[in-house]
Design a protein around this nucleic acid. Structure first.
Ligand SMILES: NC(=O)c1ccc[n+]([C@@H]2O[C@H](COP(=O)([O-])OP(=O)(O)OC[C@H]3O[C@@H](n4cnc5c(N)ncnc54)[C@H](O)[C@@H]3O)[C@@H](O)[C@H]2O)c1
Ligand SMILES: NC(=O)c1ccc[n+]([C@@H]2O[C@H](COP(=O)([O-])OP(=O)(O)OC[C@H]3O[C@@H](n4cnc5c(N)ncnc54)[C@H](O)[C@@H]3O)[C@@H](O)[C@H]2O)c1
Lengths: 213, 213
DNA sequence: GTAGCATTGTGAATTGTTTCACGGAGAAAA
DNA sequence: TTTTCTCCGTGAAACAATTCACAATGCTAC
């Protein structure tokens, strides 16, 4: 299987959500239906689905259950994939609350803090450790994904700890471009930048809904 | 001035941050410096800066103060631009805390809630109103940007309220593709999708830091 | 059967974005 | 003055993503 564009991966989660919400008595679905639910074109949906190795039929479109299983096989881990979060502040807490117990195969199993008042206890049902223990904990729990929700100036330090501990993907909320080896995937979520973009385009006439974060 | 690509607008905020953090005694800066600080190439920096109508000099690069002023003139509103947020839950609260008092020209001046225990009081120094009063408040306060941080199923309803009240740009955290007129700019921040993407690429070998949210 | 229709998968075209590469310009040194 | 740097601005090339467009398919109607 060759390398799949990140944007395609992202859109597959959109299709999966649509499929999940289709009533059970509806066995098939067309690309234009999936497209409409995600604000995309039918051609793009079909193009994206090509990576799955599952083909629909011209007559009925895609079998809902089958397509869903194929997306799940592609997108979801076969066994539990573990996640850690560094920084339990405004954002960190929100993420912990939101993701706790939501997905069986993708679970936040540890959080790390620099503040002694926060670590060595449970936060949102998840053990919070000192950031100094991160490398050990990450290795012992076999954590492959890290979330960075610490202040901007601490972000590179945490990234280095994560990478040193063998983490393979990072979701970064800090406004700091991280320097990591090329085999570690980084997805930046820059909320301040997003605000500036919206504010900018709100001042212009111009159109064009941007896709996704 | 013609239409500027959203990605360029986003990167200009990155350059602005770098300029802001340059010590005052350093009067000039080269494209390759700006590039390194944002994980980009010098050519892309120069290309982006073309939209500003301000040119550097081959000898010294860009004048820090001047370039900064030009980016500010391009990116920041001339007069205060007002923002409202719907939904003061996990995310809404985090955003209110983070953005309060941070930017003089881009200010969250109202929040809207459906829960009577939350509205008709101050939250994070910002008056929280019933969502039913949204149209009136948005018009009276001349709010042009809306943030959607309500549950997924409520998102379209809130978007319709926002659009009806004349809002021009929306930052959407709900996992629901919004349907809005083409002259309203929508920036989606889909945290669950971002998690799935990171988890997917953490499982593959493959490289490639994705840019920004 | 066959005609008519809507849909799929995908090569080709298009559109959008990034990188290359080079002319030109200022500075410094001889 | 002339030479030699390094860097900027930008046209052109390369690359990436999206959309078009059409042959092929299977269904329904007659
Ligand atoms: N909250 C928002 O809405 C928002 C918006 C835009 C950007 N951000 C960015 O997200 C990041 C987090 O923001 P926040 O509002 O949650 O910040 P916060 O200050 O509320 O939380 C940061 C937490 O990280 C902890 N911490 C500090 N250094 C640490 C270290 N070395 N290791 C582990 N933990 C450490 C702190 O104790 C604190 O609890 C920041 O980089 C910020 O710029 C946040
Ligand atoms: N928190 C996260 O980390 C996270 C992650 C991924 C996605 N999201 C998305 O962000 C959105 C908000 O998430 P959250 O965790 O903050 O949710 P939340 O349930 O904590 O907060 C939602 C708030 O919206 C209010 N609300 C409900 N209906 C409303 C209406 N019609 N008008 C105004 N207010 C209304 C509720 O009273 C509540 O306070 C959801 O769509 C969620 O899917 C959140």
């Amino acid at each position: 299987m060759k390398t799949v564009p990140p944007k395609t991966v992202g859109r597959l989660t959109l299709y999966w959500r649509t499929l999940r919400d289709i009533p059970a008595d509806q066995t098939h679905v067309y690309s234009h239906v999936l497209a409409a639910k995600s604000r995309l074109t039918p051609a793009q949906v079909r193009r994206d689905l090509m990576v799955l190795g599952y083909a629909g039929t011209p007559a009925h479109g895609y079998n809902v259950q089958l397509l869903r299983k194929h997306i799940e096989a592609f997108l979801f881990p076969a066994s539990e994939q573990r996640v850690a979060i560094a920084g339990v502040g405004n954002i960190g807490r929100a993420l912990l609350k939101f993701f706790s117990g939501r997905r069986p195969t993708l679970r936040i199993v540890a959080s790390f803090e620099a503040n002694p008042e926060k670590y060595d206890r449970l936060i949102q049902g998840c053990q919070c450790y000192s950031i100094e223990k991160a490398e050990t904990v990450i290795r012992e729990m076999d954590i492959s994904v890290g979330i960075i929700a610490v202040p901007d100036k601490e972000a590179q330090f945490v990234a280095d700890v994560f990478v040193g501990a063998g983490i393979r993907g990072i979701l970064n909320f800090a406004r700091a471009p991280l320097h990591v080896p090329p085999d570690v995937y980084v997805e930046d979520i820059d909320l301040a930048m997003a605000m500036d973009k919206v504010a900018y385009f709100a001042r212009r006439q111009q159109a064009g809904s941007s896709a996704v974060g």
